[in-house]
Design a protein around this nucleic acid. Structure first.
Lengths: 200, 200
DNA sequence: TTGACTTTTGAACGATTGTTTGAATACTAA
DNA sequence: TTAGTATTCAAACAATCGTTCAAAAGTCAA
């Protein structure tokens, strides 16, 4: 009876395909600017079929956010675990590079840039909780560096927001056939921010 | 016959009030997520009245962008003119601080963050031209600093995008009643970026 | 007050959109 | 093949939205 399992996996793959199509459309035209038909057309389906996989349009938006944040958080945990003994500079550098990589290669720039104002309070709260978790992780590394004297005294929250903003903005201008790849962007960005924070 | 002039000025003020209301709504809910009624309600008008001042919704979005970009460009010209003899570091610092100020105090965070994908090609092209003009201004200062040896060798375009991204992102989290004001944010951001670019 | 004008209104329109539903089709176990 | 389940479709729905327009209300010089 492993056929049921195969079917379940196939359904799961279709769900993810819908999410990819939706995320791409949301990124280009915004949540309200994207119709259910926009999402289904790209997959050669009719819009009605989407309701077999998702309750409504809002659930698709929620799933997009949740999926993206899980990828980003997963990478953060991995980076922080791998760099356990390293100094703040090395950890921050790995964090920035990792975030840029996930952003460009896995999420095509959508990560935290989609409008989440369209979510109802309950779903919004869950997304914000995950987003805050990521923000705290990065702020923790910066605070660490300030305390150890590696980084100059600065407001860790503002510095975190600056870094996250710069990276989240990548989705607005990045083009896969453009002049930069994820590695270059990550290198330049992490250089800029790490040097910017370093004590003299 | 100066009454005609007074009337004209009053009409102009109403146009700007509509733009402010529209920009606030666009920022919170996106262009497609904002209805003409959302815009007019906040001004105690009916949506039909908006068409006395603007041809259609798209023209309102265009005017929002154009207004914001004019403010930003105006500040940039002023900063670059005032700092004529200064070194790249001082000029970049003033540019970042000026952009943050305009962004927060004049534009309540909307500057370049509104969806311009909703504009038809002709209008879009004009907005992009102005946005590029600003981008070139900032890139110019960075390139200058790299050439003079003040800044370390780095990709000026990527550095510019990082800085603009961080500042444009401010509108996503800034709250007037929050813990930071424009001066603090500008100081922290300009420190971060100027130090990040400086040659050792 | 009159009369020419600017501005606002409120209702109506056509189009689009998210969602529902019942029938049609594809798939799979027996 | 057949029966039962999973998936897709096409049509119809109610609601919302951008836009138009003729009439009403407001403004102000003469």
């Amino acid at each position: 009876m492993q056929a049921a399992e195969r079917r379940a996996r196939k359904t799961e793959m279709k769900r993810e395909a819908i999410l990819r199509s939706a995320a791409a459309a949301f990124r280009r035209k915004g949540y309200h600017g994207t119709s259910m038909e926009d999402i289904s057309e790209a997959l050669l389906m009719t819009k009605g079929s989407l309701y077999y996989y998702f309750k409504d349009k809002e659930e698709i938006l929620y799933a997009c956010h949740d999926f993206s944040l899980d990828r980003v958080l997963e990478r953060m945990r991995q980076v922080l675990a791998d760099g356990k003994g390293d100094n703040a500079e090395t950890r921050l550098r790995a964090l920035v590079q990792g975030f840029v990589d996930v952003m460009i290669d896995d999420l095509q720039g959508s990560a935290l840039a989609l409008d989440f104002t369209a979510l109802k309070p309950e779903l919004l709260a869950r997304i914000i909780a995950k987003r805050d978790q990521f923000e705290r992780g990065m702020r923790g590394v910066i605070t660490e560096g300030v305390k150890s004297g590696e980084f100059k005294r600065t407001d860790a929250k503002l510095a975190t927001l600056a870094i996250l903003g710069a990276i989240n903005w990548i989705g607005k201008w990045y083009r896969p056939d453009g002049p930069f790849n994820a590695a270059e962007i990550g290198k330049t960005y992490s250089d800029l921010f790490v040097n910017g924070l370093r004590a003299k």
